[in-house]
Structure formats: C-alpha cells, structure tokens
Design a protein around this nucleic acid. Structure first.
Length: 576
RNA sequence: AGGCCCGUAGCUCAGAAGGACAGAGCAUCGGAUUUCUAAUCCGACAGGCGCAGGUUCAAAUCCUGCCGGGCCUACCA
C-alpha cells in the first residue's frame, strides 16, 4: 500500500541523512503518514519531523528539509516537499496514477484485496438472536456489522467463517415452547393462558393458528411434556427458517448454524467443565456451581484470619465477580454454554481468532468470557467482542420500546420491505459501532430515496450506461492509452480509486467497516465530478484517443465501485 | 452507587489512533445541462468540537473533574 511505502521511504531518508551526518543519531520512531488535509499539501503528509525535533535538537522544518533531500526515488512519488512548521508533504506522481488504471483493470475483483490475515482463520459470529421471535431491526445492526466485517476480513486475507449461534436450549426456549403451546391451544378454542414471562408477540399467535390448522389436536392429545418438546422443535424450526430468510433478504448467508444444545450432546460441555473443575476455577456455593476468577488451588489453605473486615470485603468483592455456571436446580446457565462454545471455537474447530458481535447490553459478559478463556488455558486475545450501541427507535418522534419479551417488535423484515435491503444495510453501516444511533422509522421511510447508497449505486449505473451507449456506437476501450489521463478530474478520480486497499486495511485493523461507506461516497463524488467535467464517448474528431483512455478509466472506476459495494454488501446495479 | 459507550453545524453523523485553517449528507438559499442517466455538478449559509482544568512544540482526539444521554451491574439470554 502506498501509505506504508511512503512511511518506509521516509524512514530510509532519515537513515540516509543520519549516515551523511546531516542528522544526529537517534532511534527511529514509527513514521506516521496521514492523508494530507488539503489538496494544496499533496496526497500524503507526515508530521514525523515535529516529533524528532527534540531528540535531534533541531528545528522541525530543518529536519524536514534534510529528510526531503534524501528521499529515495520511487515510482509513485511525484513531489516531496518540506512545509512549515515541519511537515513532509508527498504528492503522488500523475503518471504513476494513470498507470494504476491498468493495474486495477488487471486485478479486477481482486483489487482491494490484501494479505494482512496471511491466511489465518477467523470465525465471525453474528446476529445469533434467540430463535424465539423474528429478527428485529436491532438485530439488523448486528447483522450488517458482522457481515460487512466478515467481508472486510476476507478481503484482508483472513480465512473467514461466518456463524450463527442458535440458543436452542435453556429458559427462554422453554418459555417459547410454553408460549407456543398456549397460542396453539387457544387457536383450538382452549382457555390456555400465556405462561408468566412468556412471549406475547403476535407472531406466536399466527404460528399457533398454523400449527392448529396443520396438525389439528395432535399436540393436545399428547402428554403435556411431550407436546411441549414437540412444539418446541417445530417452533424452533419455523423460527429459524424465518430468521434465515430475513438474513438472506439482506444478502447474509452463514457458513454454519451452531446449535447450543449440540455443545452438550457432543460432550464439549462435559470436557470443559472437568477442565475448569480440575483447575480450581469452579466453586460450590448456595447449591450452585460458580466460576471464579480467583482459583482455589487445593494447596492454598492458609487463609489465616488476618484483618477480618478487610478480608471479608475482599472476599465479597471477589464473589461479586463470580458467575453461576450451574444453577442450584442442576441446569447449566447460558454462561456454561458460552464456555463450552469458546472451547469449541478455539480448540475443537481450531479457529485462530473468534470475533463475537454483541449489543452493548451484553457488555458485562465480556470480562467473564475473557477470564474464562484464560482459565481454560487459552489466550484471551484470541477472542474479540465487538460491542455496538443499541439502536434507539422512534416512530414519528415517539420513542419505541422494543423487545421480543415485551411484544413490541419492529421486525427487520418490515424495514427491509419498506426501504429495501441496500438502503437498510447502508444506513445501518454508516455509523461507527460504538456510536449510538437514533433511527426514526417514519423519517427513514420518507427519506429513503435520499439514502447515500443511491448516490453510490448511481455512479455504478451511470458507468454501465456509458458502456451501453459506447457499444451501440461501436466504441471500445481497446488500445486506450491511460497515460493521457492527466485532467484534474481524472486524476482526482484515480486518487480515490487507489485508496481502496488502505481503506480495507483501516476497516480490518480497526474492525470498523463503517469507513467503507464513507469511502464509497467519496469515490462516487469523484466519479460524478469527473462525469460532469470529462466526456467519455464522443464522435468528435480528435476525441477518439482520449475517449479510449477514459473508457479504461471508467471501466476501472466501475470495478472499484463494485468491489466497494460488494464489501458493504450492497448491490451494484447496471441501471437505475 | 459503580462500570462501559456517547456528547462535533438546524438534523443525522464522519473525523484514519495527537498534527497544518474542523468535514460530509440532509435541510435552507443561489447558480449550472441543446451531447454518455438531473438519483448529477458548482457555490453560499452554518459549529470551534458539552463545560472547566491539565499534559504537549501541537488536543475534537490523551488525563482529571463536572454536566447531559444510552446501556449494564440476574441461579434471563
């Protein structure tokens, strides 16, 4: 990537200047390179000389001048200048830029791909919403974030595995089954109340009706326990199918759907439990089994009664951090499953890295997961949790309190049907995960045609249209000479195109795919400006040569736009 | 009470891990096209980055305190 190359060149220049005695000897720091703030300063800038002023005991500008004088030549560098108060400004070579068009054409779909991951494997687990109801718009942010992140990591050279974790066991699932039973029975005219804490949502009423229609009284005639199990399985199956369809509507497809229950059936839970137990990480208290972050080794028996109050406070604070793994009634908690699951990810299946995408309401769970990973003898850095702030929903300015358990649900499907998959994805992805976002559905629907996604897609469609027009008239980019592309608008467009790789790197390294949406807009802006300024296809005499070159440019721009949109997970239409 | 996140133009948000005069979209106002899609382009208006200190040659970015908002602090998931 250009940016990294520049940093290396500057470092080399500093070493050369030192060797010549023009700069004093000092340890070389990491050289920061940023995009220049203003075009007038060139493309990239480095403030490194300002940091060096102290160790070099020289004015920053003087250092910069000497560094500039020793910059090794490189094909992509057009101009290097020292600027007050001590910046090194780098302008890309116009000719090198023009050649990038050929590079992009040659790389095609692979342009923007990197090898940061070096083929290591990463599992990205996202959505994983309880299959006790349809996906909500809240899950949508999770979905979009996780999916775009997976795309970005794949482009950055990781072997990516996408997974949905199905919570198909535990209290909530039993409640779901009981709720479904009630709705089913009600559909058949029985006076069966919804269980306490059950799911009041309308979707279960509908499912109850369907089941009543399809199966008649079959589940009523069964023994109740059996009926609950049967309905649970039937309900989960249907719920998952609906979730899968909702995800697919957003263009999301998982490599695998991992069942929580399977962690128990496959013995992973037992294995992990024994391991923790042997390590002294489990304590029994109040009839339950707790995971403790301060292990009780059998040798550590010297709990002498020191300052009593202090010890008591200490023990209490440590106990506060303990978490129940097995309830006093013998049923494991979801935390127990998660412990087995992390083992399954990192050991059984051997992913190098596991990324979880969680809503901010799960933040408290992160330290536990890190601690338990360490307790299992695994490097906690092999798991990363991405927390995103929950979406605050409004409808015409009114706050909507939402939840499957409250029954008030705005489904993802509703929103996708209303404003479309592309607009939904783009909208949910433009903001950084840690930023709270407020979504007024009324406004979102009203303004969906102002969604920036269309601006970007329009760029792609416009290029497609240029080619249709060109084809009709028998023009082709064949033999175009890209070195002619020196118009400011052409150069500006190429500059943006060339930035895709470093944008991918930025997104991958910071695990923040939202930068891509901003990049996409800047790229589209450069294209639209070019389109206005520069005619591509023309029958004018004397235009043929530049026309062919511009067709190549526009073809390359189309590739970059398409690649960017693919990473975001949005379609790149041929016409709009 | 404690913990995590956020507070940047009228609105919704970026701001590349401390750097050069603070950015975009929307909204408002004013311009542009006899030619490849006007879902376009150009321009204007508009904030000094919640407040107060501190660190630094340099702070929207780091530290402290305060204010405001969201979330969390279950033998729910």
């Amino acid at each position: 990537m250009v940016r990294d190359d520049i940093a290396q060149l500057i470092a080399e220049a500093i070493r050369r200047a030192q060797k010549k005695g023009e700069l004093p000897a000092f340890g070389l720091p990491e050289v920061p390179v940023t995009r220049a703030r203003d075009e007038a300063f060139g493309d990239y800038a480095s403030p490194v000389c300002m940091t060096l002023a102290r160790v070099a005991r020289m004015a920053p500008i003087a250092i910069a001048e000497r560094v500039v004088a020793h910059m090794p030549p490189a094909p992509f560098i057009g101009k290097v200048e020292a600027a007050h108060p001590g910046f090194i400004n780098i302008t890309l070579s116009p000719q090198w830029l023009t050649q990038q068009v050929e590079v992009i054409l040659a790389e095609g779909e692979r342009f923007g791909h990197l090898d940061l991951g070096k083929g290591r494997s990463v599992q990205v687990e996202y959505i994983s919403a309880n299959p006790t109801g349809p996906l909500t718009i809240g899950s949508g942010r999770n979905a979009v974030l996780g999916d775009a992140l997976a795309n970005v990591l794949a482009a950055a050279g990781w072997r990516v595995h996408r997974e949905y974790y199905i919570n198909d066991t535990g209290t909530q699932v039993e409640l779901f089954a009981a709720s479904l039973y009630a709705r089913y029975a009600q559909a058949l005219g029985c006076d069966e109340p919804l269980p306490e804490g059950g799911y009041p949502g309308n979707y279960l009423v509908e499912m109850g009706h369907q089941l009543a229609q399809e199966y008649g009284e079959r589940f009523l005639t069964m023994e109740r326990g059996q009926a609950l199990t049967a309905l649970r399985e039937e309900g989960l199956k249907r719920m998952l199918a609906s979730i899968q369809a909702d995800a697919a509507a957003l263009g999301i497809h998982f490599d695998s759907w991992k069942s929580e229950r399977s962690l128990y059936e496959d013995g992973i839970y037992g294995l992990v439990f024994n391991r923790l137990s042997a390590g002294g990480w489990l304590v029994h208290r109040d009839g339950a089994v707790w995971f403790t972050e301060t292990p009780h080794t059998s040798s550590g028996g010297d709990h002498q009664a020191t300052e009593e109050q202090q010890t008591e406070a200490l023990v209490r604070s440590m106990q506060d951090k303990d978490n129940v793994v097995v309830r006093s009634d013998g049923r494991p908690t979801y935390f127990a499953s998660d412990i087995a699951y992390v083992w399954d990810k990192l050991v059984t299946r051997g992913f190098d890295w596991a990324i979880y995408v969680w809503g901010a309401d799960h933040q408290g769970h992160v330290p536990r997961m890190k601690a338990v990973t360490r307790a299992l003898g695994l490097d906690p850095n092999r798991i990363t949790v991405i927390l995103y702030q929950l979406v605050t929903l409004k409808r015409g300015g009114e706050l909507v309190r939402m939840g499957k358990r409250t029954g008030e649900i705005i489904t993802l499907r509703e929103v996708v049907e209303e404003i479309g998959a592309d607009a939904t994805r783009f909208m949910l992805l433009t903001r950084a995960a840690e930023s709270q976002m407020e979504l007024d559905l009324t406004l979102a629907v009203q303004q969906s045609n102002e969604n920036p996604v269309y601006y970007v897609q329009y760029g792609h469609a416009r290029i497609a249209s240029i080619f249709r027009y060109a084809r009709e008239r028998g023009f082709s980019p064949e033999g175009g000479d890209v070195s002619l592309l020196i118009h400011p608008a052409e150069q500006a467009l190429i500059r943006q195109m060339v930035r895709l790789p470093e944008t991918v790197a930025l997104c991958a390294e910071s695990l923040s795919p939202h930068h891509l949406t901003h990049y996409a807009q800047e790229l589209a802006t450069a294209f639209h400006a070019f389109y206005k300024e520069c005619r591509v296809v023309s029958e004018d005499a004397g235009h043929a040569e530049i026309g062919r070159a511009r067709m190549k440019l526009v073809q390359a721009a189309k590739i970059v736009l398409a690649n960017t949109l693919r990473l975001i997970g949005v379609s790149a239409p041929e016409s709009m």
